[in-house]
Simulated scan of single mutants.
Amino acid sequence: MADTRRRIWSMAGLLAAATLSSGLLTTTASATEPDMPEAKKPPIVGGQPAKIAEHPWVVYLTDTQGNQFCGGTVAKANKIVTAAHCVTGEQPAAVQVVAGRENKQSTAGEVAKVTGIWVHPRFQNANSGADVAVLTLDQALPHQPLAVAAKQDAPLYQPGKMSTVLGWGATAEGGQASQTLQKADVPLFSDQDCQKAYPQYKADAMVCAGLPQGGMDSCQGDSGGPLVVENKLVGIVSTGNGCARPNAPGIYTRVSTYHDDVQAQLGS
């Protein structure tokens, strides 16, 4: 159906993108596609710079060498919600969380170690749903958590509702990661339109967002990051057919479906 939006610029990610063989559609740009000059590459594919002070709950994940590969959301002082495909099979010691840092080249904010990884027990791959995980940190972060959408938040998922996706991922399909936090405001699709774009789309597990004509979307490296509606986490960047292609919206984990499971991990 689609490709996950994890790392592509680290060496491991470049090799993975080059050898993808799981039956999913490739998301790397073709060799004949002209390279857009760096100054003209759109952020988060059609978005704009975002201030960490206005979105204090958005974080990014790195390996132990500091290479960013996914995003996440502070849901409790020491708990991060992210995508299962970002961390499945990983050992906690191999993952770090960077919070309060708008520019990846700066030293602002905090770097927390991960002491525990919970992956939803029904997760198999991003195309089958349950693409949600919760990380436990070795410290309490001083940043305001973001509320997690619950089952009663169905109105937040109405088609046409404007949502905001944030991340430090690729600025163009197959392109470079952004050094600074980016955001894009995209409307939610109806389940019927998502089904047309992705026949294997599961309405109870997923939600789509983007523009019918393309041009604005999350991309590789944004996986695990937040999709926000009215100050609630409604989606988690999961997968999609390329980035910002026409009639191919981004696919996000429908957080409300997994609210109770996530809340159990948050300990509240």
Results as ranks from 00 to 15, higher is better:
2 A>R: 13
2 A>N: 10
3 D>K: 09
4 T>N: 13
6 R>S: 11
6 R>G: 09
10 S>A: 12
11 M>K: 15
14 L>P: 00
16 A>I: 08
18 A>R: 15
19 T>R: 13
19 T>M: 12
21 S>I: 09
21 S>G: 15
24 L>F: 09
26 T>C: 14
30 S>H: 13
35 D>R: 14
36 M>A: 10
41 K>G: 00
44 I>A: 02
44 I>S: 02
46 G>E: 06
49 P>K: 12
51 K>V: 10
53 A>G: 09
55 H>I: 08
55 H>K: 10
56 P>T: 12
57 W>I: 05
62 T>Q: 07
62 T>K: 08
63 D>G: 11
64 T>F: 02
65 Q>V: 12
70 C>G: 08
76 K>R: 13
79 K>V: 01
81 V>K: 06
89 G>C: 10
89 G>V: 12
90 E>M: 14
91 Q>Y: 08
94 A>M: 10
96 Q>R: 15
98 V>P: 01
99 A>S: 15
104 K>E: 08
106 S>V: 03
106 S>D: 13
106 S>T: 13
107 T>L: 14
107 T>S: 15
109 G>A: 12
110 E>Q: 14
110 E>G: 00
111 V>S: 12
112 A>W: 07
112 A>M: 11
113 K>R: 15
115 T>V: 15
121 P>G: 06
121 P>H: 05
122 R>D: 11
124 Q>G: 11
127 N>S: 05
129 G>W: 00
129 G>L: 00
131 D>E: 05
134 V>K: 01
134 V>M: 00
136 T>G: 12
137 L>G: 11
141 L>S: 03
144 Q>E: 13
144 Q>D: 09
145 P>T: 04
147 A>E: 05
149 A>Q: 08
152 Q>K: 14
154 A>M: 10
156 L>G: 04
159 P>D: 11
160 G>L: 07
161 K>R: 15
163 S>E: 01
164 T>R: 13
165 V>Q: 09
170 A>L: 00
171 T>S: 02
173 E>Q: 15
173 E>K: 12
174 G>I: 06
179 Q>I: 01
182 Q>L: 01
183 K>V: 00
184 A>R: 02
184 A>M: 01
185 D>H: 08
188 L>Q: 11
195 Q>A: 14
196 K>W: 06
206 M>D: 09
208 C>I: 10
209 A>H: 07
210 G>W: 05
210 G>V: 11
215 G>T: 06
217 D>G: 08
219 C>D: 00
220 Q>A: 07
222 D>F: 02
224 G>R: 03
225 G>Y: 07
227 L>F: 01
228 V>D: 04
229 V>E: 05
231 N>R: 13
234 V>A: 02
234 V>K: 06
234 V>F: 06
236 I>H: 02
236 I>R: 01
238 S>M: 02
239 T>W: 13
239 T>H: 06
253 T>I: 04
255 V>N: 04
256 S>W: 04
256 S>P: 02
261 D>I: 00
266 L>W: 07
267 G>S: 07
267 G>L: 07
